[in-house]
Structure formats: structure tokens, C-alpha cells
Design a protein around this nucleic acid. Structure first.
Length: 469
RNA sequence: GGGGCGGUAGCUCAGCCGGUCAGAGCAUCGGACUCAUAAUCCGUGGGUCGUGGGUUCAAGUCCCACCCGCCCUACCA
């Protein structure tokens, strides 16, 4: 399975919203790897957005400097969030990217033509609007642009796209998003501008082949990353031969991924992605996350304060499949205490304690009294991380119930050994099931219940909130 | 303007093709237990399922209108 995230433009440091998408992609990647499937998990940054240029100007630093610094911050999420991506592409630095963009451009040449265009351009959105103001409310007024650009005959692919989506060849999840895209396509597709004058782009970006006065539209440039990130044999392996190719993205950029991008590929005669997986947005304390407004939560700071398990668990367990989710530190703490400390941590702790106290640490043979069946996989196939996380957690809940039901402290001899052996086995199984979601927790649990003889108990997670006495 | 998505217990949310669907978790309250991180387990209370109509033997669950929040899209139905 080839799994990609969108590549954010790097006009600022990453916020919690980026973490959501990366963690979701990471869970998919780890899950499918664990099933023994070949997986390539690809992410990166869009360095060529005009917004990056403007951010650099506002800050008074060279574009290159700002882009390098912020891109490094995005790549640096790998450690704190425990991301397992295999590839990280930067559109300004990746050796094959520019050449790949040019190659696609030429392959699509039969659908490109020059046209004079008068329009109002919103830099914030990187797109044209027929009339102002920008619906997203980006502060700056729309730029009146009058220039000759390259256009792509998107209109030509309307029927083909509709058919691909209707037939499920191009799967869009959740279904509501699929309907949304279908409605958009069936309403009629107009050709789109795919270049801009190099002057207006401040010279930043990839020049149009054989037309140095023009720069390739940043979206064209960015979308191409999904194939340009794959060089040499990797392209053949992951874009041509791979059966499942999934793009993860936020709801704001569906049109680019589910319409423009497939149309580009159709025109170029290249294979298409198979899954478009769309998540909604996060708000923080009830407010929209705004990179510029500072209300953004720094995922790295959050991890530093609460640990990667806490952050990943909140993102996976609390964010619904449909609808924006509101992040608050209180909710994260509540989830941490309830699930990680009281649920998982306490379970492992009580099991280890009993094995040490009653059996001198020796682990008896045992079959786990609980299991998860296919619920996790089914939920992930539906792109429902919350349901998947809940499915894994049934192991914790059932194991805790099992302890209370069997009451091993009252048991003796073989009965007690059978119970405790089963519980240790259950914890080991839990470690395995947990790995795609919480790698650190999985490792901690595995360490606590590994081997023939268990060491002394040590709490895995301390409660964060004060406990009333 | 068009299209779509939400509006279900105090909070966060499940409820697919209509008939144990009125639910789960948290919070509250009561009980049990003591292996454990004052944790765990069991049980209780609480909702006119946004509003108003309609279809049906039967509707959160389908249809229409409206209200609130949000998203996409379009100044050409």
C-alpha cells in the first residue's frame, strides 16, 4: 500500500492539524505493515508556494532560509510523533521533483494552451476567484491579475472523472465527500489556469518548460510530488504496480486531489490513485487553527509535556470520522488519565504485581482470554480511526473485567497460574495490537510482560490530574 | 443562489437498508472488591432523538418545510 499525506506549505511551523493527518497516515502504514503487506508511507513539504515567499518577506529573511527552517520542523515531527514515513520529499530540494514536474507537463502538453486571463487572485488560497472577496476571509485584498497563462483542458475529463468516482475505481471516503466531489464534477468542469507569470511569483517555483516567463502553478507542482517522490524503480513499484494508493488530506483540498490530480494523470496517461481519504479539521479551544494567528498548538511542545502516546491517543481516540473536533488540553488529560493511566497502565501494573507476588515473577503458560477479531482492520478500512482505537481498547477493558471476575488473589495453585498466565498473554497480545496506534505504549507493555520472569512492577503512566483525597 | 454535512442523556459521541434504537463512554449516585496508579468491577438516575408537518400497522431511521452550526460551490436555475 502506498500511503501519502498532503505536503503542507511551510510558511510557518507545523501545528496540531498537521499532526492529525500524519498520525492517521502512520497508523495506516503500521497497520498494513503488521499485516505483512509492503508499505510505502510518503510525506514531505511544499516549498514552492508563493505564501512561503510572502512569509519570508514579512519576516525579512531570505525565502530559502525560511523554507529550510520550517521544512526541517515538519520533518522533525518524525521523532516526537513516532512517525514511520519512508520518504520525505521537499519540492524545492528533491532531485527528481523538478524533472518529474517537467515530464508530466510535457506529457500533458496536448491538453495545454495559452490564454489571456483577467482574474482576481487570492494568495492565501493560491487560486482565482471570479469576484471578491476571498470566501475564506484571508485578510489581504484579492490581486487583480491580467496576464497570459497556460490552461489545462480540465473540461475534457469531466465524464471520465465522474465515471471513475461513480464506479468506485477512485474511492473517496467518507461517502459524503464522494458525493460532494461528484456534484462538483457533474456541475461542469471549466479549464483551469496552471501557470502564472514568473514575475508575479517573485521568481519562486518551477519554470514552465520552454517558457521561462511562466512558473508552474503551485498546485500542479505540489500534486506531482506523489509520483516525483518515487524515483527509479520505486516509481514502477509503488505507482504502477501497487494495487492500493491512498492519499490522505484535509477537507479543504479535496478538489485538487479528487479532480485536478486524476485529470492530470489521465491526460498524461499515468495510473491513478485508488483512495482519497478525507479528514475534517481540528479546532483548539473552540477556535479555528490559524498558522498566522498564533492560536496554533505546537505538537512538539504537546509531546514534550504529555508524551507521544498522549498526543497520538487523543488524535486517534477523540477525533470523529466526520465533523471537526475541538482540542483542549483538558480533554487530552482526561483521555490520558482514563485510558492510559487507569485503563492500560493499571492493568499491566496489577498483572505484573500479581505475577511477582504470587508466582515470584515466573510467567506460567496461558492463553489470552480476550481477542479483537477483525474489528480493527474493518474500522481502518472505513478510515475510522476512532472506531479502530476503541476496538483495540476492548482488550484493555475485557482484561480488566477478567481480573475482577477470576479474582486471582483468591485463587490458588493451577487455577491461579492459569488466570495469571492468561493475563500475561493478554497483555502481550495487547502490545502487538497497540503498536500501530501507540508505538511507545506497545513497547512499554511488551517490556513489562516480556520474558519468562517478570521484573518488579512499575507504573506505565501516572495520572496527570490531581486525585482528590 | 445551488449542493452537502451535522443538530440524539450535563459533556463527547454510536445508531447501515424503517419495527428490543432510545444506546456507549465520561461525569453523578449506590454497591462490590482489594491484585493495582484512591485504580478496577457491577448497578442507578438522566433524553418529547433541532422545530413543524407528511408517508406507514410502525420513524432519530424515509419525504417536505423551517431554525441553528459548518463545509463545498457558484454572482449566469
Amino acid at each position: 500500500m502506498y500511503i501519502t499525506t498532503t505536503i503542507p506549505y511551510v510558511n510557518a511551523r507545523p501545528h496540531l492539524g498537521h499532526a492529525l493527518e500524519l498520525v492517521q497516515a502512520d497508523v495506516l502504514a503500521r497497520h498494513h505493515r503488521r499485516r505483512g503487506e509492503p508499505v510505502r508511507f510518503q510525506t514531505g513539504t511544499d516549498d514552492n508556494s508563493l505564501k512561503n515567499v510572502l512569509a519570508a518577506e514579512a519576516e525579512g529573511v531570505p525565502v530559502r532560509e525560511l523554507v529550510d527552517r520550517n521544512a526541517a520542523a515538519f520533518e522533525g515531527l518524525r521523532g516526537p510523533l513516532e512517525l514511520s514515513f519512508d520518504g520525505f520529499i521537499r519540492t524545492s530540494g528533491h532531485p527528481g521533483h523538478r524533472a518529474g514536474v517537467e515530464r508530466i507537463w510535457r506529457a500533458v502538453g496536448h491538453d495545454l494552451y495559452r490564454r489571456h486571463y483577467d482574474g482576481l487572485y487570492c494568495v492565501g488560497c493560491e487560486q482565482f476567484y471570479p469576484a471578491g472577496p476571498c470566501p475564506d476571509g484571508h485578510g489581504e485584498p484579492l490581486q487583480a491579475v491580467s496576464e497570459e497563462n497556460w490552461f489545462f483542458r480540465l473540461s475534457r475529463y469531466q465524464d471520465a472523472l465522474a465515471e471513475l468516482i461513480r464506479g468506485g475505481r477512485l474511492r473517496i471516503e467518507p461517502a459524503a465527500r464522494r458525493n460532494e466531489v461528484l456534484a462538483f464534477v457533474e456541475a461542469g468542469l471549466a479549464d483551469i489556469s496552471v501557470s502564472r507569470s514568473a514575475a508575479r511569483a517573485r521568481g519562486w517555483g518551477i519554470p514552465v518548460p520552454d517558457d521561462p516567463g511562466q512558473v508552474v502553478y503551485v498546485w500542479w507542482d505540489a500534486l506531482a510530488n506523489y509520483v516525483t517522490a518515487l524515483e527509479g524503480g520505486d516509481y514502477e513499484r509503488w505507482w504502477v504496480r501497487e494495487r492500493r494508493k491512498a492519499h490522505l488530506m484535509g477537507k479543504g483540498v479535496i478538489r485538487f486531489h479528487a479532480v485536478y490530480w486524476p485529470a492530470m494523470l489521465l491526460s498524461a496517461g499515468l495510473p491513478l490513485p485508488t483512495d482519497i481519504l478525507v479528514h475534517d479539521y481540528l479546532t483548539v479551544d473552540g477556535r479555528k487553527i490559524s498558522k498566522s494567528a498564533g492560536g496554533a498548538v505546537d505538537p512538539v511542545a504537546l509531546v514534550a509535556a504529555y508524551g507521544s502516546d498522549a498526543v497520538r491517543w487523543w488524535l486517534l481516540r477523540e477525533v470523529p470520522r466526520v465533523g471537526d473536533a475541538d482540542f483542549t488540553e483538558a480533554r487530552l488529560i482526561a483521555r490520558y488519565d482514563e485510558d492510559l493511566a487507569n485503563g492500560l497502565g493499571n492493568l499491566v501494573n496489577r498483572v505484573v504485581t500479581m505475577v511477582c507476588r504470587f508466582l515470584d515473577g515466573h510467567v506460567p503458560e496461558g492463553e489470552p482470554p480476550v481477542g479483537v477479531s477483525g474489528a480493527v482492520h474493518e474500522a481502518l478500512e472505513d478510515f475510522d480511526f476512532r472506531r479502530a482505537a476503541a476496538a483495540v481498547w476492548t482488550l484493555v477493558e475485557e482484561a480488566n473485567r477478567y481480573v475482577d471476575r477470576e479474582q486471582p488473589w483468591k485463587q490458588a495453585g493451577p487455577a491461579r497460574e492459569r488466570t495469571l498466565g492468561g493475563l500475561v498473554a493478554a497483555c502481550r497480545e495487547l502490545a502487538v495490537q497497540l503498536e500501530p496506534f501507540l508505538p511507545t505504549a506497545a513497547a512499554r507493555v511488551a517490556a513489562a510482560v516480556g520474558g519468562d520472569r517478570l521484573g518488579p512492577p512499575a507504573p506505565l503512566y501516572r495520572r496527570l490530574s490531581g486525585v482528590a483525597h
